[in-house]
Amino acid sequence: MTSIDVQDLTKEYGTKRAVDHLTFSVLPGRVTGFLGPNGAGKSTTMRLVLGLDRPTSGTATVGGRAYATLDEPLRHVGALLDAQAAHGSRTARDHLRALAASNRIPERRVDEVLEQSGLGSVARRRVKTYSLGMRQRLGIAAALLGDPPVVLLDEPSNGLDPEGIIWIRELLRELAREGRTVLVSSHLMNETASFADHLVVLGRGRLLADMPMREFIHARVQPRVRVRTTDGAALGDLLARHGIEAVEGEGGRWTAFDARVEDIGRLTSAAHLPILELASEEATLEQAYLDLTGVETEFAATPTTPQTQEA
């Protein structure tokens, strides 16, 4: 089993502690979203896993081994750290050829991953002519080059166009379905919610959460029901009588907390209140995340208030 195991990992730069006694595992067969505000230590943790930075203390292993001891590591772990890693004056194909040669990966894999990332037609163009989104695709192609069982991607959706966002989402789901271990950092909540099964959340270098995404959301955000009838006041009375906490919004629309559509539908029906609108408001990852990190966010300028999302 190829999991990523981070054990009591700490990294200090001078007096600043970027990663603080971090312990978690990333398991195969699912996409793990790696969340946290800027400067929370996500990228540092990824560099430590790849043996690029040296930990102050603790260990990070892939499949039980330190990355630096892996033979032909690109065949074990593929990583996208920085979309600017390819030299602008080289063609995408030459960039990948050099990378492939270092791990004795056959050259046909280069063309395969270029096709897979949608760069087949521009493979022989120099990287400096690429948009950020194309560079991002090239970085992902590099990560897939060795057909690795473990994939680490740092902000892969950066700069991608809508089509690219859908592509990366499908790709990540596919990689997890194939049984690979997939760790994807992001600060885009809706994006992460669309592909992650599991979450690891950091704040100021510390582990804030490590749990399935559904569980994470439901533990932090109450389900809500939005309801509107012809008689807002009567609806308010009805809800209050049944002990359902609710607030009135604009246009006679009520939002009931900790309730289900089934219950409210029955109540209004029994009370002969004509319903104009009845919908459950799905809790979003964004709400749950902001609830968790609100106090932890290092660079928050103003206190953040959760935005409700139209479900």
């Binding site: 990583a79 750290l81 590099a142």
Partner: peptide
């Protein structure tokens, strides 16, 4: 632009 990281990820 992080080229070294990619090189050293390939040859640690």
């Amino acid at each position: 632009g992080g080229a070294l990281r990619l090189s050293l990820a390939a040859v640690p």
